[in-house]
Design a protein around this nucleic acid. Structure first.
Length: 243
DNA sequence: GCGACAG
DNA sequence: ATCTTGTCGC
């Protein structure tokens, strides 16, 4: 487990954060297809919070894209770097997620984020931001439609419908399991939408959510609990050093 | 101005 | 995200 602080120069206000998004937005690469689904590695990243203790834990789990078996996994714990503000999620998640990615013993391949990429008020969501900062191919798979609209996809797995920001097409509502609520897929960095959808389907042979996010979610929760337990133990040591 | 709003 | 028990169903 890695420990991280808030990076120097990290935005402290919403205004600064929006300015960063406007400045970095132009660096997103949208004209690359990205790695072919089912080959190489796919990495899930996710974060869990304890706002009261000002703790955040991130996990990165690398899967073999063909077998979906775990190849490597890391965690990182740090201080919360930004409040939750819709549209500014990346500033809350990225420092710890990057630390977890940096700690991996192997290249992550495609990174699957829990949230959005292009589908964002300024077209620069978490997946876009993480991709630009790391140079890695990224996609976003979100559980909720955020502020976007869509028509229900057909009932079968694989059915998809446009995710719309007004009249602008920013991603897809994708049914990953028969008769189950869709997930919301958008491109991040260096991956086409078709490839993002294919990867998402390849990662959902059994559940609504990609195996990558399921694994990363479980791991970061565990890491947060261990960090929380560690903090509690240190506190009791200070009160009763012999216990 | 008010409400909604990824995690 | 997180607080939280049981419960219906395959």
């Amino acid at each position: 487990m890695t420990t991280v602080g808030v990076p120097a120069g990290w935005p402290a206000t919403e205004e600064e954060a929006r300015a960063v998004q406007d400045r970095l937005r132009g660096r997103v690469v949208l004209d690359e297809p990205g790695p072919p689904p089912g080959t190489g590695r796919v990495t899930g990243v996710d974060v869990a919070y304890d706002d009261d203790r000002d703790l955040v834990a991130a996990a990165a789990v690398v899967l073999d894209a063909a077998t979906l078996e775990v190849v490597a996994e890391t965690t990182a714990v740090g201080r919360i770097s930004f409040p939750y503000v819709p549209g500014l999620l990346a500033f809350r998640e990225i420092p710890t997620v990057r630390a977890a990615l940096d700690a991996l013993p192997c290249p992550p391949g495609l990174v699957v984020c829990d949230g959005y990429g292009l589908a964002h008020p300024r077209r620069f969501g978490l997946a876009s931001h993480l991709g630009v900062l790391t140079g890695l191919p990224t996609i976003g798979v979100a559980k909720n439609p955020f502020t976007f609209t869509y028509n229900d996809p057909g009932p079968g797995r694989g059915s998809a419908a446009p995710l719309l920001s007004g009249t602008e097409d920013v991603g897809r509502a994708l049914r990953t399991r028969d008769g189950v609520k869709p997930v919301f897929v958008s491109v991040g960095h260096r991956v086409s939408l078709d490839n993002a959808l294919a990867h998402t389907l390849a990662l959902t042979p059994a559940y609504r959510l990609p195996e990558t996010t399921r694994r990363a979610d479980a791991l970061c929760r565990r890491a947060l609990q261990e960090a929380t337990a560690g903090a509690a133990q240190e506190a009791s040591m200070r009160q009763a050093p012999t216990s």
